[in-house]
Write a protein that binds this DNA or RNA. Structure first.
Length: 473
RNA sequence: GGCCGGGUGGCCGAGUGGCUUAGGCAAGGGCCUGCAAAGCCCUGUACGCGGGUUCGAUUCCCGCCCCGGCCUCCA
């Protein structure tokens, strides 16, 4: 295991240590299914999908758990407007998230537990924390006693007394009484009309953080390798998850990874967020942007960097990815049946870049270097070397889920391709005759007519031998 | 106010105590082409400001300015 990742708790890049050799347990904080996914949610999924795929490519067995928070204050609040029950809203939005993930080739998790399906585990975990003296019941609520937790704040670098000084740290809206304003709810008593489950403290539902502590341990064990999510979750969510899990006697996550957020161009760089009213929905983007280009746009930056979303960012991605697609298309056509020689693209450099805290930008630089070298080989007619280079470039692209051949095959019409090929060949012959007579007007007319039909002709010169290839515009 | 993270060439975006100082886009020049398309080559010498350490700092340290995240729901 040569992968090194930034660990939020250590505040440095350190090797990802595995509890069981060859197997990695990874927990990802999934969405609260309250509204349809926006670009920021998808950036999260894409960044972590690259991690997932790189772990797989490294030969590991990956157990990826990504939860769905399908009951919480906002879902309850937002549902009911059109008579839609909260659980119907949650189900509808869960499907919207799944569709968004699928649209950009995010691999599914190994398990996708829902809060509503994990209530017994959650209740048992809260009981355990109470028994161990770190939580107390009050008015049907159960609160974690933060002052009893050794090392509280070490994940996010917070100091208890500094938090206490903040006037905004005092939560509200609870029915019970907190002994300390910093204490947070593990279990919330149901108010009239709210969904609830029976518990030793009366009917209620889980507090915000407890579900992840329960579901992670359910699937990955009391101590597991890696926990990931957005930087906006570091405090209080992950800090509290860690605190309550320790109170239960669990080792919990050994490594914490947080990715940057999507910011909005023109918004002063502020993050994209539903509550800020500046979000761009995935489904809207996909009406004008190809999904593979969206994937490139969201995945090309380093995962810890903020990512500015703008029309320019999409255009940049289209240009950069288009260059890759052009190479793969041209090289694939040219090397059909060619023996493989020596690659000019370096898998080792690519792997080293990803091993170093998922250095996708450097890895893409290696891909682009391979594309440039490949294009030169294509022009020189060095087909064996080109075939090998193409193979390596595609192997790299596959890790990023950007291989134009396997992962993003050209849409419909696949069966028609040979037919079109034959028809275009007739036109190409006619144009070749005209060119032989130096009848440029006639030759250009043929090309223009094909162009009008959406077919672009490109003359080639491979090692002194002229040829013609075509593609759809 | 506190805690994190960041300010790199026209734009996006890596990285580094000095070495041939990523990559993409855009720009200029050249090559190839009847023209075009695609492609190849070359060019641009950047690291917020002020100190300090050092033979040498964009890279380390200190201060300052600016931006973002978190401290309230959030990927």
């Amino acid at each position: 295991m040569s992968l090194r990742l930034y660990d939020t708790r250590a505040r440095s890049v350190r090797p990802l240590a595995l509890q069981q050799p060859g197997r990695v347990g990874l927990y990802v904080c999934g969405p609260t299914v309250q509204a349809r996914p926006h670009v920021g949610h998808l950036r999260s999924a894409v960044a972590l999908d690259v991690l997932h795929r790189w772990l797989l490519a490294s030969g590991l067995q990956v157990v990826l758990v990504r939860n769905v928070t399908d009951v919480d204050d906002k879902i309850i609040h937002d549902a009911g407007h059109d008579g839609e029950p909260w659980w119907a809203l949650a189900t509808r939005m869960t499907r919207a998230f799944t569709a968004a993930y699928d649209s950009v080739q995010v691999l599914p998790p190994t398990a996708e537990p829902r809060v509503t399906g994990s209530i017994p585990s959650i209740v048992a975990l809260v009981e355990r924390i109470v028994e161990r003296g770190h939580a107390y019941a009050s008015g049907g609520d159960v609160y974690l006693s933060v002052r009893t937790v050794k090392g509280y704040g070490e994940l996010s670098g917070q100091e208890l007394d500094a938090l206490r000084a903040s006037t905004r740290a005092v939560a509200h809206g609870h029915t019970g009484h907190k002994r300390d304003p910093l204490d947070f709810a593990l279990w919330k008593a149901a108010k009239p009309g709210e969904p609830s489950w029976p518990s030793p403290w009366g009917p209620g539902r889980p507090g915000w953080h407890i579900e992840c502590s329960a579901m992670a341990v359910d699937h990955l064990g009391e101590s597991f390798d890696l926990h990931a999510g957005g930087v906006d979750l570091v405090f209080p969510h992950h800090e509290n998850e860690l605190a309550q899990s320790r109170c239960a006697g669990h080792g919990f996550a050994q490594h914490w990874l947080h990715h940057g957020l999507v910011t909005v161009a023109g918004g002063g760089g502020e993050k994209m967020s539903k509550s800020l009213g500046n979000s761009t929905l995935v489904e809207d983007v996909l009406t004008t942007v190809r999904p593979q280009v969206l994937r490139y746009a969201l995945g090309a930056a380093h995962y810890r960097s903020p990512l500015e979303w703008s029309p320019q960012a999409v255009a940049d991605a289209e240009a950069a990815y288009g260059r890759i697609e052009t190479f793969v298309r041209n090289a694939t056509q040219a090397t059909t049946g060619a023996p493989a020689g020596e690659s000019k693209a370096s898998w080792d450099e690519f792997a080293a870049a990803l091993d170093d805290d998922l250095g996708v930008p450097q890895a893409l630089a290696v891909v682009h270097a391979g594309v440039r070298a490949g294009n030169a080989l294509l022009a020189a007619g060095e087909l064996p070397a080109l075939a090998a280079t193409l193979g390596q470039v595609r192997r790299m692209l596959a890790v990023l889920a950007l291989d134009p051949v396997e992962q993003w095959p050209a849409g419909s019409g696949g069966q028609l391709a040979p037919v079109v090929d034959a028809l275009v060949a007739i036109a190409v012959e006619a144009r070749a005759d005209a060119r032989a007579r130096k009848d440029w007007a006639r030759a250009d007319a043929v090309r223009d007519r094909l162009n009008a039909s959406g077919i672009v002709l490109e003359d080639t010169m491979v090692d002194g031998v002229p040829g013609v290839r075509w593609r759809l515009a």
